[in-house]
């Protein structure tokens, strides 16, 4: 590429970025206006300003922060374990014809099960604090597993030949051929796992837990404290949204 062409390409990219930011800002503004209007129609929805006030106040409250920490720890553990476990299972399923024949129908069937119905079974086994992590793992596991298994199966035959012809070991094959080849589906799986780990944990907290943001939401609903409820929901949305966007941008950047 000539220097001029490269410069104009990067200028174009800069232009795209400006458009993207303007678009996002516009969308956020529309959402705010709709929110403001909606808050005037029903007492359940507090105004944006009121919500923000409650949110800031909450974040200064040690008791509330304990709930934030409980949920955060559960989500991060569920995400980490779910991704690693899903990745390993996906590799095995993608690489071994036998594992595929035996386990693939099972995996597909299990993925179709509404996982939350298992919660009452998990509770006596993993206790209140462990069950929501296990639920988060169940939610996070499948997108990674399925994306990795499919990705591995689609590694071009010539890459296997190349690896064998240069006598790559299994570990080298994994690190230098398989993982880079499946980088895109793997990252997509990880992004989905991040948001589904939140879903699994918070959903569990709605049902039964000692501490956590899900419990805060449910309790403030019970007390009719809608500002507290919406502020907490907003916090959950903003955090998951930011993580998803960051992972998505990373996904778009890789070759």
């Amino acid at each position: 590429m000539s220097l001029a062409a490269r410069r104009s390409a990067s200028a174009m990219r800069g232009h795209e970025n400006v458009k993207e930011i303007a678009g996002s800002a516009g969308l956020a503004l529309v959402a705010l206006v709709v929110w403001q209007v909606a808050s005037g129609l029903t007492f359940v929805i507090p105004t944006p300003v009121e919500t923000l006030r409650v949110l800031v106040a909450n974040l200064g409250d040690p008791a509330y922060l304990t709930d934030v920490r409980a949920t955060a720890v559960a989500v991060v553990s569920a995400f980490t374990v779910g991704t690693v476990l899903g990745g390993i299972m996906g590799l095995v399923l993608g690489l071994s014809r036998w594992a595929r024949l035996i386990f693939e129908p099972l995996v597909i069937a299990l993925n179709g099960v509404p996982k939350i119905v298992l919660y009452p079974i998990l509770l006596p086994i993993f206790q209140l604090s462990g069950s929501k992590v296990v639920m988060g793992i169940l939610f996070a596991l499948f997108p990674v597993l399925i994306n990795v298994a499919t990705g591995v199966r689609e590694v071009p035959a010539v890459y296997w030949k190349l690896g064998r012809s240069v006598q790559a070991s299994r570990v080298q094959m994994l690190l230098h051929i398989i993982l880079p080849t499946i980088r895109r589906p793997l990252l997509t799986g990880i992004r989905l796992a991040a948001s589904l780990a939140v879903v699994g944990v918070v959903l569990s907290e709605f049902f039964a837990t000692r501490r956590g943001l899900g419990r805060v939401v449910l309790q403030s609903y019970g007390h009719g404290d809608y500002a507290e409820m919406v502020a907490t929901i907003l916090l959950l949305i903003v955090v998951s949204f930011t993580v998803s966007i960051m992972l998505w941008r990373w996904e778009k950047r890789i070759r």
Partner: peptide
Amino acid sequence: PGRGIGVVFQEESTLPW
């Protein structure tokens, strides 16, 4: 396969990353 024998494949075999 051994190191003394090099192969150039027909298919696209460069690694895009």
